[in-house]
Amino acid sequence: MENTEKEKAPQYIVDVDNVTVRFNKANQKVDNLKEYFVRLIRRQLMFQEFIALKDVNLKIKKGEAWAIIGTNGSGKSTLLKVISRILKPYKGSVKVDGSIASLIELGAGIDPKLTARENIYLNGCILGYTKQFIDEKFDDIVEFSELEDFLDSPVQNFSSGMKSRLGFSVATMVEPDVLIVDEVLSVGDVLFRKKCMKRMKEMLEKGATLLFVSHNMTTVKEMCDKAIWLNNGEVVMSGDINKVCDEYNSTIEEKKAKEKKEKQKK
């Protein structure tokens, strides 16, 4: 019985199930003992709840490319953080069946005092790779990052473009099962950006699953086939990219029109 049921159930690579994420929105963060005891005595240790995500469901099959859209503060980044295990959900569960490469912010572990070579190893290890594996991929990484001449100089002398090239090259050195991208490609020159896009498309062709956050609807439509629209932490709509994007655009237009009207009234 169980076996047949399992076969019937579609296999999701990312399964976000009824996830709620809660933050403390207290006016003042209590982060020291003195404050803690003062407030304990005055009974001011309150917890002001802020729900960043509310009952979000997102089921992604292998090989799909999903866009996450929504206005600022709608919970897009929180959703990505939950999927990439940085945040634990308050309620619900997240299951990811495979390796994740998250390009949420490039060069998260880059130490400016170390050289590029040392940073490649450090960053690779932070992402969970073994030294042996990085040894094998080292030449590819260096070639892709175009930093051959600067390998042994400290990263603090690098430009921000060079740093993100280094970060991107390390982060994408494997073919991950799930690739999470959060508008990281805004740095770097046009040529490198194109190179990154190409690399991402290659990964998609090889069967990777993509999760992409962007405000640029043209890029989104170009890269993705499905979309989820978040507003104030709740899912407004999810499904086919064109439907969701059109609906989203028209809502935004409506809003703009409304605001214009109100302004005119004033």
């Binding site: 170390l114 040392e118 290890c125 030294k131």
Partner: peptide, 24 residues
Amino acid sequence: EGSFFEIFRYKDLLVQLVKRDIKL
């Protein structure tokens, strides 16, 4: 995930971090 024994998965990271501290 989150268990103490996960440090064995990251043993290469430990080497890198210690090397960094000593080197610097």
